[in-house]
């Protein structure tokens, strides 16, 4: 080996060591990293642009990392991490919210740290049960591709022959999939606690595609793998905004509403920052942006107006809420594990 070689190797080794130390040491020094769980795909944009960026600007040395998650993986990681949590805040749909409160890993946030909560409609505050803030709501309706299937007017239309072979679903590991199973049970004589009637009915929908999460399901519209699917209003709106031939309907007897709470994880290393973050999520400034096209995140703040073009995706005003379906999630949550296991066995592929 020549002298030059030795030098080259030495420099490479030093560079490696420096890079390594930099990485291995990140968690202990430098700017504070704030990790917020967010939504997957393009629905993450409002969180980034109108929540995280202004938040960073207000706090100087804080850097916000958004982690896309809709599956239970993240929840499992939070529960598994002993001591400090790897994440600081997390959005949870109602069923998850109930479970998280029972399991005790989200904070009962002191109301005096959340001044913006005063402007939030009590209908939503109730849904989060004093933990975190009701950040938004979404409607569960039917998304369909008008070029390939007719417009479904009611939930039960899904069982009509025109839709056969075009249906997409998600596993009950996601709120979407779980809500659909419970909804089916209710449509056919069951209830939140008696989901038995759902199974033969879902079998009648076969053949269908099962995606592992709502974002993945929405993707299947892009690639024409499915033409009709129960979907969240936000995911459907984003698809349509991309120029895709996808429409969203609120089928009879009504779309299902699901409130999403933004929670502070109890084991967070930055409780003050986390509380400020969720307080900002119910501010008029943030929600007035998130409700705009193409996301149409349902506003919980009474001072925010719903734009006209959100017509298909959101109820026109708070008075229209009576037309929406709500599920008894307290009862539903108790059967969730069993529903998930049953689904995986019934529709194993």
């Amino acid at each position: 080996m020549t002298r030059a070689h030795w030098w080259a190797n030495g420099i490479a080794a030093c560079a490696l060591a420096t890079a390594g130390c930099g990485l291995f040491g990140t968690s202990s020094s430098g700017s504070r990293e704030f990790v917020a769980i967010s939504y997957g795909g393009p629905t993450q944009v409002p969180h980034r642009r109108f929540l995280a960026d202004p938040f960073e600007a207000a706090h100087g040395s804080v850097k916000v990392t958004l982690v896309a998650s809709e599956s239970e993986d993240v929840v499992a990681q939070i529960k598994a991490a002993r001591g400090g949590s790897p994440y600081d805040v997390i959005p949870l749909g109602e069923p998850r919210q109930i479970m998280a409160i029972e399991e005790g890993w989200v904070e009962r946030t002191p109301p005096d740290t959340l001044p913006n909560l005063d402007a939030v409609h009590p209908y939503f505050r109730e849904a989060c049960r004093g933990h975190g803030v009701p950040e938004t709501y979404s409607l569960l309706g039917l998304a369909y591709n008008p070029a390939r299937v007719p417009r479904p007017a009611a939930w039960t239309d899904l069982w009509k022959p025109e839709f056969r072979g075009h249906v997409g679903l998600t596993t009950p590991a996601s709120n979407l999939g779980f809500a659909f199973v419970v909804l089916t049970a209710k449509l056919f004589g069951g209830s939140e606690t008696d989901v038995e009637p759902a199974w033969p009915q879902i079998h009648k929908l076969e053949p269908f595609v099962v995606a592992s999460n709502p974002t993945a399901l929405a993707q299947l519209f892009e690639r024409n793998e499915v033409a009709v699917a129960p979907l969240w209003s936000n995911d459907a709106a984003v698809l349509a905004s991309r120029g895709l031939n996808v429409r969203f309907v609120q089928p009879a007897p009504g779309a299902l509403i699901l409130v999403s709470c933004l929670d502070v994880i109890r084991a967070t290393a930055h409780p003050e920052l986390a509380r400020d973050y969720i307080n900002r999520a119910v501010s008029r400034e943030y929600q007035a942006q998130a409700v705009q096209a193409p996301w149409f995140f349902g506003p919980t703040n009474r001072q925010v107006d719903i734009p006209a073009e959100a017509g298909d995706y959101l109820p026109a005003s708070f008075d229209d809420f009576s037309k929406l379906m709500r599920l008894d999630w307290d009862a539903g949550t108790r059967v969730r594990g069993a529903v998930s296991a049953r689904f995986n066995r019934e529709f194993r592929r």
Binding site: G40, G41, A68, S212
Partner: peptide
Amino acid sequence: APVRQRPLPIELFYLMRFDLD
């Protein structure tokens, strides 16, 4: 892998699992 420091294949895996970016 540590949760906050995910290597590239994990990041790609989640990208593909969620929205096939």
